[in-house]
Simulated assay, not measured.
Amino acid sequence: MERLNKFLAHAGVGSRRHCDDLIAAGRVKVNGRKVVDLGLKIDPASHDVSVDDHPVKTERPVYWAVNKPVGYLCTNDDPDGRPRAVELLPHVEQRVYTVGRLDEASEGLLLMTNDGELAHALTHPRFSIPKTYLVLVAGKPGPDDLQKLLDGVWLSDGKVRASDVRRLKPQGDSTWLRIVLTEGKNREIRRMLAEQGHKVLKLRRVAIGPVKLDKLAKGKARRVSEPELVELRRWVALASERIAKLKEKAAKAIPDGMKLTPRPKPTGPRPGAAFKPAGPRPGAAFKPAGPRPGGAFRPAAPKPGAAPQPAGPRPGGAFKPAGPKPSAAGKPVAAKPGAAFKPAGPRPGPARSPARPKGWRPLPKSR
């Protein structure tokens, strides 16, 4: 059993996302019945699948070895229209994709297939399938530099290491190295050597497991031979056995009292948690979009029962024209009613005592 979108993608209908769109649009039928379930699983041997009433048949698996030149991308879709590695196989009817990637500036061996299980095993670091590269670096790396590549180099996405590094021959001020990796991160070799102060001038992949580039010309492709394919599957089987043994050994190392059995995950609401429907909370008053129930409506007009206020001076208030006040300059200031008139000048009162002569002091008081 496999998912319907995966079956359609392997049959060459399109990418899995495109196949999901076809299923959601109701254009796919299984045994004559329209399906819209994106998670549906089928048995390719017993189910009849059609798209727009055209039957879809399973593609036979194909395996190709390609010598990618510099400047080609390892993608099936590029919006910028740059050259792609799949364009080197125009005669292949099946929808194939690359096993692993080489960046645009690198060249060498690519495996292209529609066998998803084998491609996953060849690229996943857990299986440790070796990939061999010939690298021309600037300068002359010493034994310490090569040992650091074997011990591991810290990059932004973790620690990476090479499984084997050898110095081959000098070329002017540069040096050819042979590097073997068992995992593939983005531009891993270039970043590792850059940490050691050596720029990569050329990078060519020459082998993936038992499949070798040999004398395949740039831009050309050949079928992977049957002996190579058998050897590839044998390497994957040995890696699977090794992984299973490591898991069994790790399980035995845990005491019986420490082993934990995973609890099944419920598919409904959490136990003990109240169900929360997508709407107002149960028991909560409904709040319509508008004025609050029971609250006074506040229109943008005067309050009900209030006299309208004309645009002008307030009712009952003295009119205050713009300009100087009536008591401004040019008019005498009238005295307040009932207040004594205060002329401008010194306040009326007793005469001031004359100024005391210099050196005068009062007599002491008698006791």
Rank of each mutant, 00 (worst) to 15 (best):
G312Q: 06
V333I: 13
T175E: 14
L88M: 09
G305M: 08
G312N: 11
A340R: 14
R292I: 02
A244M: 13
D78M: 09
A306H: 08
G290Q: 12
T175H: 05
V30Q: 02
G152I: 06
K218L: 13
G305T: 08
D173S: 13
K249V: 01
V96G: 01
V180Q: 13
G108N: 07
P282C: 06
I129Y: 03
D21A: 14
V180T: 15
G312R: 14
V137S: 06
R205P: 04
A250E: 15
K169P: 01
W176C: 05
P304I: 07
I42E: 12
V36P: 00
I254D: 06
Q94L: 10
L177T: 07
A344S: 11
Y72N: 02
E231P: 09
K265N: 07
N67H: 15
V70L: 07
W176I: 00
H124L: 05
I23F: 10
W176L: 03
N76I: 06
E226C: 00
A11E: 01
A85K: 00
H10A: 10
K259M: 09
A162I: 10
R352G: 09
Y63V: 01
V180P: 06
R167Q: 13
L38F: 12
P210I: 12
D173C: 01
G172M: 08
D214N: 12
R27N: 14
G295I: 00
K247D: 14
F286D: 06
A194Y: 02
E107N: 09
E93A: 13
K29F: 12
V224R: 03
K212A: 13
E2F: 00
R367W: 07
G158I: 01
L150I: 12
V96R: 00
K247Q: 15
R3S: 05
A121I: 04
T182Q: 14
G338F: 11
S106T: 02
K29G: 09
G26T: 11
G219R: 02
G184I: 06
A335F: 04
N31L: 03
H47K: 05
T98K: 02
G345P: 03
K41W: 05
L8C: 09
P346Y: 01
A207N: 07
G139T: 10
P90M: 05
A11L: 00
G312H: 03
L177H: 11
R167F: 07
K276Q: 15
G290A: 14
R263K: 15
V333C: 04
P266N: 03
P264L: 11
G71C: 05
H54G: 08
Q147N: 10
P362V: 03
G283Y: 05
A194D: 15
N186M: 09
D52I: 06
V70P: 01
V92G: 07
S106H: 01
E183G: 09
D145Q: 12
Q147T: 13
R263Y: 09
K303V: 05
K169Q: 14
L110D: 00
L38G: 10
R292T: 07
A278F: 14
V13C: 13
S327I: 05
R281K: 15
K131C: 01
P280F: 04
P362L: 11
R190V: 12
P291F: 00
G272Y: 10
K185L: 10
K57I: 07
A285C: 03
E241P: 08
R190N: 03
L260P: 01
G359V: 11
E188F: 02
P364F: 09
L201M: 07
G81C: 11
R223C: 06
P293G: 11
A335Y: 04
R352V: 10
L238F: 06
